[in-house]
Simulated assay, not measured.
Amino acid sequence: MTTNRQNGSLYVNIQNKIATIEFGHPASNSLPSDLLLRLTNELNVLSMNNLVSVIILKSEGDKAFCAGASFNELIAISNLEEGKKFFSGFANVINAMRTCSKIIIGRIQGKTVGGGVGLVAACDYVLATEKASIKLSELTIGIGPFVIEPAVTRKIGLAATSALTLDATSWKTAYWAKEKGLYAKVLENSKELDEEVDVLANKLASYNPEALVQMKNVLWQNTNHWKELLAERAKISGQLVLSAFTKKALAKFAK
């Protein structure tokens, strides 16, 4: 079932030490500011919850995992403050995933674009289907994936990030993403994906919670400067979205 709520939906279910966060939006599970804020807050709350060891991050439906930023909100940005605030939404989610004390499993059932790729990269372990192609199309509208770049590069390396960013009109397959290290496994369909996610989450939930917390710290070492770094990147994107090039490109897309 997919949501028809304009601000999207966010549901959290906790069972057997496993918290499942499911987000949804009628526009291919894109992420408006309100939904980004709710996701950030939920991650921060779960980080402190001693009854949770593992988080599964998923989106609604069986089509796109995430279409990235809200197109309507991008078009509406009229000054630097608004632009910086909008892109800070993605910065805040990535930082919340980074500092969350729980291991985060990404369940990726379909195509993912832009900021959605950043969300995937900030997961600790990612399982996907063959349909889970990825694309960073930001350069085509005159901006760039500045906020999510550190998370993506940390996962797949600079060369792959360059290829993904500069070839801004092409989809990279799920197998390309696996080869580069973004996905740990690629499954044939959603049924197999759910089974695999379930097995992994239950295994992790059975391990020593203290060991998982320490492991999470180790996996994310050398990223303590990201709060400042991603805020700086949000400012770059906020400036670029006001450029004549971007305004023209967005108006063209809007038609």
Rank of each mutant, 00 (worst) to 15 (best):
A64I: 08
A211C: 11
L46W: 03
M215V: 04
N7Y: 04
S206L: 03
A160K: 00
K102G: 02
A163M: 05
T173A: 05
I55E: 00
Q221P: 01
P26R: 07
Y11R: 07
F23M: 03
K111P: 04
R38Y: 15
Y125S: 14
Y207G: 05
F90E: 13
V152S: 01
Y175M: 11
T223H: 13
D124F: 07
T99Y: 11
A184F: 07
V12R: 09
N50V: 01
A234M: 04
N222K: 15
R5Q: 12
L212P: 00
I18D: 03
K248C: 03
Y125M: 12
E188R: 15
E179D: 14
S33C: 08
K203H: 08
G89Q: 09
G68V: 11
F86T: 07
T165H: 00
A201M: 01
G106T: 01
W226K: 13
A174H: 12
E42L: 05
G68E: 12
N7G: 02
L74A: 04
K252S: 02
L46G: 06
L242E: 09
G238E: 06
V93A: 00
K227E: 14
Q15T: 14
K178S: 08
A128Y: 11
A69P: 09
A231V: 08
I104Y: 02
A231E: 13
S243Y: 06
A132L: 03
L119P: 05
E188T: 15
L136N: 01
V12L: 07
V93E: 04
L187K: 12
K203W: 09
E81Y: 01
G144H: 03
I141W: 11
V218D: 15
M97W: 07
T173Y: 09
V52Y: 03
N222M: 10
A19Y: 09
Y175P: 04
R5A: 05
I14V: 14
G144P: 02
V93D: 00
L212Y: 01
K17R: 10
Y11T: 14
W226M: 06
I141D: 08
D34G: 15
K191V: 10
C66N: 15
E195Q: 15
G106F: 05
I134N: 02
I141F: 11
E130Y: 00
F146S: 11
C123G: 00
E149V: 00
P150Y: 00
F87N: 05
L219D: 11
L35R: 07
I104F: 04
A254S: 15
H25T: 08
V113S: 10
R107Y: 08
Q221N: 13
M48E: 15
L182G: 01
R233M: 10
S190P: 01
L127H: 04
T223Y: 10
N7M: 05
N41I: 07
L119T: 05
V218A: 15
A177E: 02
S243I: 05
K227W: 08
F253D: 10
F87A: 13
T2Q: 12
K102R: 09
A122N: 06
K216C: 03
F87G: 08
A163F: 02
K85M: 14
S30A: 12
T223N: 14
F146W: 13
G238H: 05
K85C: 13
N16W: 11
S162M: 10
